[in-house]
């Protein structure tokens, strides 16, 4: 009797192999659609902007060293500890969109990104995630833009975005961005720092901080281009970046957004920091000799209460770094 039971519950080699093969097969043909369905029920809620008081509405630091300029500009607003608290999960969103070397100004200056990551780490951030939905292959963009190495040096974590982590955002009904997929990590964070590079764009005129937020979206990039200004403003209101730092050390004046020729690059040696994305964009637009009101999404952002493009009434600190 005892022998019989023991025989029933022991597994032999043949049984082991056939059972494990069966398990593997079952696993491979797992009902993936059901998993997707669960994900579809989940919707991302809009990010809440932290209520932070700054010493100035905008700070612009000009100097030879982009890293020092970045530190000075953020310090002029009151310093990074005002934005990043101990134990925070911070997202830094540079422009890593293109497989170009840093000098072509198609991607954010790695020194600026490195300085920001360091400041966040110094302020006690638990994790500093850096990512962008790239146009060229992510591995090539992250590497050749110099940003991957810079972030690793500074102690941040570089994240190559996974397709399944884009989740439909709970935009207001009737918004042009309704149910547009947004990267989960971009919303599930304590502090969001937007770090674009200032450059030309053939559709929106310029690509600055508001346009840079496209890099947290999934979906078809091309479809975003239809009625782009309204979509960008809706997206900026969804992500609500706590801090905007615009890299205008090198700016791309023509053949944007991807550039590729040094003839189109000009040195402005400036880093702009502000809590207000519209104000930062307006300042950068004027730096590039464009009227802020001419740029569709800046004007629309100002009209919709995303921020203010009125440079004359803003408290602006200019610093020689």
């Amino acid at each position: 009797m005892g022998k019989h039971i023991a025989r029933k519950y022991t597994i032999n080699r043949k049984g082991f192999i056939s059972k494990s093969l069966g398990l593997i097969a079952a696993f491979l043909f797992l009902d993936h659609d059901r998993m997707k369905l669960n994900a579809a029920e989940e919707k991302l809620q809009p990010r809440k902007k932290r209520n932070i008081k700054t010493d100035a509405d905008l700070a612009a630091a000009t100097g030879e060293n982009p890293s020092i300029s970045t530190r000075r500009a953020v310090a002029a607003l009151g310093g990074m500890p005002r934005f990043v608290k101990r134990g925070d999960v911070v997202v830094i969103k540079p422009n890593i969109g293109w497989d170009r070397a840093p000098q072509y100004a198609a991607t954010t200056n790695p020194d600026v990104v490195e300085a920001l990551v360091r400041m966040c780490v110094e302020s006690g951030a638990r994790t500093v995630k850096v990512f962008d939905n790239t146009c060229n292959s992510a591995a090539m963009c992250y590497r050749n833009s110099g940003i991957e190495a810079a972030v690793k040096r500074a102690g941040g974590s570089v994240i190559k975005m996974a397709k399944w982590k884009y989740i439909p955002g709970n935009f207001p009904a009737g918004s042009p961005m309704e149910d547009w997929p947004v990267y989960r990590d971009a919303v599930e964070c304590d502090c969001f720092i937007n770090v674009p590079v200032a450059k030309h764009h053939s559709l929106t005129g310029l690509t600055l901080s508001i346009k840079n937020l496209m890099g947290v979206c999934g979906g078809t990039r091309g479809m975003m281009h239809i009625g782009i200004d309204k979509k960008l403003v809706a997206l900026a209101g969804f992500i609500n970046p706590d801090l905007t730092v615009i890299d205008a050390y090198r700016v791309l004046l023509r053949h944007g957004p991807s550039g590729g020729s040094m003839d189109d690059v000009e040195l402005k040696k400036t880093v702009i920091a502000s809590r207000d994305p519209v104000l930062a964009d307006a300042y950068a637009a004027r730096l590039m000799n464009r009227k802020p009101g001419e740029i569709g999404h800046i004007r629309l952002g100002s009209e919709n209460g995303l921020g203010s493009m009125d440079l004359s009434s803003a408290r602006i600190k200019k610093i020689n770094a």
Binding site: C135, H201, S202, L203, R221, H225, I226, H255, G256, S258
Partner: peptide, 30 residues
Amino acid sequence: ENCIVCEEHCPVPEKAVKLNKKTAGGVRLY
């Protein structure tokens, strides 16, 4: 409808996709 996706992705520095500008009904079309 404006799009320019091909132009912005074109990796050739001088851009092999050129944009003809046309203004129709107050909207600039590329």
